[in-house]
Nucleic acid binder design. Sequence first.
RNA 1: GGAGGCGUCGCCUAGUCCGGUCUAUGGCGCCGCACUGCUAAUGCGGUUUGGGCUUUACGGUCCAUCGAGGGUUCAAAUCCCUCCGCCUCCGCCA
Length: 413
Amino acid sequence: MRASQRARGEDVALVDALLSADERRRSSGVRFDELRNEQKSLGKLIGKASGEEKAELLKRAGTLAADVKAADAQRDEAAEETQRLLLQLGNLVHPEVPVGGEEDFVTRETHGEIRDFAAEGFEPRDHLELGRLLGAIDVERGAKVSGSRFYFLTGVGALLELALVNAAMAQATAAGFTPMLTPALVRPQSMAGTGYLSQGSGQDVYHLPEDDLYLVGTSEVALAAYHMDEILDADRLPLRYAGFSPCFRREAGSHGKDTRGIFRVHQFDKVEMFSYVAPEDSQAEHQRLLEWEKQWLTSLELPFRVIDVATGDLGSSAARKYDCEAWIPTQGKYRELTSTSDCTEFQARRLQIRLRDGQGTRPLATLNGTLCAVPRTIVAILENHQQADGSVRVPEVLRPYLGGREVFEPVAK
RNA sequence: GGAGGCGUCGCCUAGUCCGGUCUAUGGCGCCGCACUGCUAAUGCGGUUUGGGCUUUACGGUCCAUCGAGGGUUCAAAUCCCUCCGCCUCCGCCA
């Protein structure tokens, strides 16, 4: 148990409780099996018997039935307790993950050139100002219609999103991903199986009580639950899906954080990569997902770095997580644009997804990675590719999806 | 929203009315073996999934599993209730 690396003392107590519950589950199971075996053979005799003999057997079976029922209840209780404790356990962390909190990440690599606006002779505008000039973003009316952290993408803003989504899907498809449009509302089992309802993470999720449905914070949920309760032939792996869906986040714990603009919002669209692989392939797949993210950000001509997220910031399902952070000029720092997690067998166990090979069946590994989270990508593009007159240069990779357009011109003052 | 039909161990399917030889039938597919110049055909055996006990191992054995969960009963694929999913028709709707 790598509990110490998670810096969670309660994990040790949890494991002890878990082991004793499991012991109880197994011993009560044995008792039930024995009683039930006896009951079944007795039942067969009753079927054949008649008269006085039958009456005698029925009498015995009556008391036996009560015992079976009691043993059944006891076993169910122990199994439930075991399961309850099991679900509280976070994933095992990869040994190389830096230990610590949010600030204790390790920077793995840095790409692209950070522009020197002073040398170019102008003060960079932030994305909200650029969005206003281009007629691309309307947060005032977003707030009027839906409240804070909502927005409209208008004009070239709307077109930019569609271009980004198309370009991202094109890259993913070229890499062999199956494009998927996924449900944004899912059942509790899908949410829990993916690890989004455990502990604190449930706070960030919208729930519709009338229907007992959850709004997903990422299409990862639907893509993971897609193969729930299935056994996949090993030779079908890896399975790679590129999902596109709206994403909803309550941002409950982030009052006052990133309140300006569209960096942190309640609803946005995202293209997400998702892989099902054999457990022994998960680390290699994780590197591949990272490479695809880097390819994407590079094609958008954005300066970014890759960080190895520290233990305290991993969440319950990831064994390891890399974030790609793009440089945001007006904030003077790198901010998360994409994130890729190796969930090893954590989600597969909860969702009952297994692989079948020559050896039998066993859980597989799932991994996810952002390809394009739209609003943040728009923020990075506007700010990094802005020009002195308030226009924004369109990265070449997007031009085919924008009718060949090379620059967004201001329409307002 | 209303009415009806359906859900069986990869796929198809028997069984459900009338509870107990159901330890769930048969076919297809798949795996192994035999036979056979090759292929094919044929024959024999195997083939849901999960959990436990036992075993160095091979294996043996028990329990659960007929969409899910409850109930009735000595005993449930079979009877009753609730839920889920799929299909058909009507209504409404992008």
